[in-house]
Structure formats: C-alpha cells, structure tokens
Design a protein around this nucleic acid. Structure first.
Lengths: 165, 165
DNA sequence: TTAGTTGCAAAAGCTTTGCAGTAAA
DNA sequence: TTTACTGCAAAGCTTTTGCAACTAA
C-alpha cells in the first residue's frame, strides 16, 4: 500500500509551522514523525509509548500541544470513538477518514468506503433543511481475526423490554 | 407525535428492577421519569438541572448509578458525540437511535432515517468478512434555525496542505 | 536577542468509588 | 431485619493551563 513517505508529511508540517511563524522544535518533529510513520489510530498514550521506544522522553503536555498543531494543519485528524480518550490519524493516504469499522474484540480500527454518503447528505438537506458539513460513520462488530478466535457478541441486559410495552 | 406515556416506561423500569431483585427507590423513579418525559438527548448535568427544577435534590453519583441501570435495562441508550461527556435518550419512540443530525451551532440533536444502512452492512460483511453488530452515523452541520441566525461554518487551519504533497 | 517552547505540577471536567448513614421490602 | 441505596467527598482519567527555565532562528 504505497502511501508516500512519512518524511514528506514532516516537511509539510514544517512548512505549516513556518507559515504560521512558529519554530519547528525537536519535540514537534518527533511527535509528527511517530504519527506519520503509523497507519494506526493512535492515542496520546500510544504516542508517548512509541516515543519512549525511540528513546525520546517528551512530556504529555507537549504531545497534546503538538497534536493541536497537527490537527490545525489538517495533516492529522482527531477521532473520538467513545473510549474515553481521543485517537489521532495522519492523512497521508487518500483513504476515507470518517468511515470506520471498529472491532469490539480487539479494538482495531479500519476504514471502509461508503459511496452513498453524498446522496444521503443531499437528501437530508432537501428534506429537512439541515446543512451537512461533516459526517462520521462507525460500524462496530467483529473483525475476521476475532471471529476466528471464536468471539461472539450478544445483546446484554434483559431481552428487549420494549416489545412488551 | 404520540410516543406513549412516560409512566409506561417507568413501570417497565420498575419491573426490570424487580426482576433483578433491586429496589425501586424514589431517586431512581425521579431520574427515570426525567429521561422518559423528554424527547431530547440529555447529559447527566441536564438531568440534574431538570430534577432541581422539579424540587428534587439528587446527588450526581446516584444519577450516574441510575443511568447505568437504565442503560442495562435497554430502556435508555447512551451516546457519546465527542463533546467530552455523555448523553442519554429513552427508547419510548420507534425512531432510529443511532443516526443523528448534530447542529454545530446550538448543539441540538435530531434523528434521521437512513434506509441504506442494512445494504451497507451486508456489503461490508460480504467484501471484508467483518461482522457488523451495531452502527453509528452522525452528520454534523447547521440546523435551519442556526442558518437563519446567519451562522456559517468554514474549514479552519490552512487550505488543504494535502493537495501539494 | 527575543518570541515562543518545554516540562513539571497543578487544575479542570466528567465519571466512578469508598464509606457511614438511610431506606425499601 | 436485611439487603441494597444514597450522598458526600475523594479519587480516577484524559486533557488543559500556569509558570519558570530554555531554545530555535
């Protein structure tokens, strides 16, 4: 899957900072590099861990501040999958960035295509007057690996009390 | 929009508690009643405020503990719209519960229909082997009222640096 | 040299938990 | 009477902020 080189995005980030009159520090470069070298959806904690692996000891505050800049530069997208923390993903590849398959077994996230979105947004605008700006689609379930491991999902709680109303 | 009576759901909740061998307390009834009387997506704070209006002074801890029970009973659904806190909605009406229009101006949430979802899930299962279990679709934008107030949304940050990669 | 950063620690905001006193059944 | 609940305050988590020391340019 050729998605270009992480370095290219680090250079773009450097350019963004220059345009904004902000310095490119070693810490900013390191955080950006971690994100641009991974195809995953990383949490601030994941990033700190990977930095540690690389022998970099960078404060959480700096990581968060750099993530802000990366998001503002549009090179990185912030996600909230309702886990209690946020995840960050670079935009090096042209894959859709707001349509996710989320495995309830292992937590892994993949993108998928949903060509019907534009038509749905057009219908909403036409029928309700709501003006769509951005969207988010998540499908939670089980990836093939977790199914192979024999995992299964069931509705928890009582068996649909709604039916008996 | 006839959605049945809040009392019917309070009774169902009472029954759920009985089945679990748990007592129906005054506080539980009050929290459930607030939720079942509203068509909105309420935060724990909203619920506390409405209880205060009703002259009920119920601790946040009890509200959260009751919300847990309501969610477990399947009478209430928990949502996380990435606002930093959760919202809760009852399931008295048969409206879709996982497809939301979210106004970026006033924060109001409405449901919408998306009949193409089953076909999308079927396609995913067929093409990737991922087994869909539940979904969430959000479209963020501006409601008609906020558009009328002259609000507009723009992309922030620099103009898509991706293009120049 | 100078504006802007960094790291620490403290704070903020939502949610959960421990515990002594209280209420449902 | 027994079991579970309630409210308060403290703690847990992720994320943000204040501040003195530091660094890119």
């Amino acid at each position: 899957m050729p998605t270009g080189s992480p370095d290219a995005l680090v250079r773009l980030f450097s350019r963004y900072l220059k345009e904004q009159g902000l310095p490119l520090t070693h810490q900013r470069e390191a955080v950006a590099s971690v994100l641009f070298s991974s195809e995953a959806h990383l949490s601030a904690d994941d990033i700190e861990g990977e930095l540690r692996t690389r022998q970099e000891r960078i404060g959480k505050a700096t990581i968060y501040r750099t993530l802000d800049l990366l998001v503002k530069s549009n090179l990185v997208v912030e996600h909230d999958f309702g886990e209690g923390f946020k995840r960050y993903e670079h935009r090096l590849s042209p894959r859709p960035v707001n349509q996710h398959l989320i495995c309830q077994g292992c937590g892994r996230v993949e993108e998928f295509e949903m060509p019907e979105i534009p038509a749905v947004e057009a219908r909403i605008a036409r029928e309700s007057g709501f003006k769509p700006h951005r969207h988010r689609v998540e499908i939670h379930g089980l990836c093939t690996a977790c199914q192979a491991d024999g995992l299964a999902l069931s509705q928890d709680g009582i068996v649909c009390p709604i039916e008996v109303a």
